[in-house]
Nucleic acid binder design. Structure first.
Lengths: 134, 134
DNA sequence: AGAAGTCACTTGCATTTTGCAAGCGACTCA
DNA sequence: TGAGTCGCTTGCAAAATGCAAGTGACTTCT
């Protein structure tokens, strides 16, 4: 995904970061508490390993997530949302509401998800590892 | 854009319709009153003609917009939002808010845009008659 | 100890989507 | 008659995506 900055329009600029088929589904997983590579792989959409790896590094580059080493030998990382990433929650909730209203066969997420705030989501991410958030 | 229906997840399903770089910028244009081919072409992001044509037909297929003949010889169409399309307004507003908060150099849209409701947007689309003159 | 498995990726390659440029038919205007 | 506009379509190159297999550093089973 190239960073082309097509215009100063917030829609166009935002789409350069979240305007693809996968970024928001990985974000959804993180919003629901998933944080490890295998967690994302296990999701029903069956993201492939190469796409997942590239999305994770793009999301990190874009400041949406951070990775934290949780073991060495071999080094393993868990991924969690930054505030910037967690602030996409309202966007995800809007999309969910729209899909539930207009698309057949979409399941309704639990109420806690639709009522969550970005602050709670960021906190959940930050608390996931014992280390203090920056 | 394939219709793969990767899962019943409203996020994944919604992304099959709006999860690309162009659909929402065309939608933005329609939300701000544009309705003709040349209007979309003139936007600062410089969408190319083939992509625009393919997005318009996909959006029509997906029930987001309708086209209306506004002249014959040669036949010309104007495009306007259905309720389903207008209902994406909150999504677009969410994205705008996020970009304004987190992305440098994004301009803030006028207040009327951020305060508009999907009903108003749908009505504007339905009532809009394309300008014939300059 | 050796064989087999797991985990988190990377690599190679085919398919699909995007982007760019040119073309085209039906007009209008000078 | 001749150039110009409008709304596309077509052809082709470049980039993104999808699929399958491979890899290194372990762990677990036998």
């Amino acid at each position: 995904m190239a960073k082309k900055n097509r215009s100063g329009c917030p829609i166009a600029s935002g789409l350069e970061i979240v305007g693809d088929r996968w970024t928001l589904v990985v974000l959804r997983d993180m919003l629901t508490g998933k944080c490890k590579y295998a967690d994302f792989i296990d999701s029903p959409e069956k993201i492939t390993t190469n796409i997942l790896a590239s999305r994770l590094s793009q999301m990190e580059e874009n400041g949406l997530i951070l990775k934290r080493e949780y073991q060495t030998n071999p080094t393993r990382y868990s991924y969690y949302l930054t505030q910037k990433g967690a602030d996409l929650l309202p966007l995800v909730q809007s999309l969910t509401r729209w899909s539930n209203a207009h698309l057949a066969h979409t399941w309704t997420p639990p109420a806690y998800f639709m009522e969550m705030t970005p602050q709670q989501a960021a906190k959940a991410g930050a608390n996931h590892q014992p280390d203090r958030g920056a």
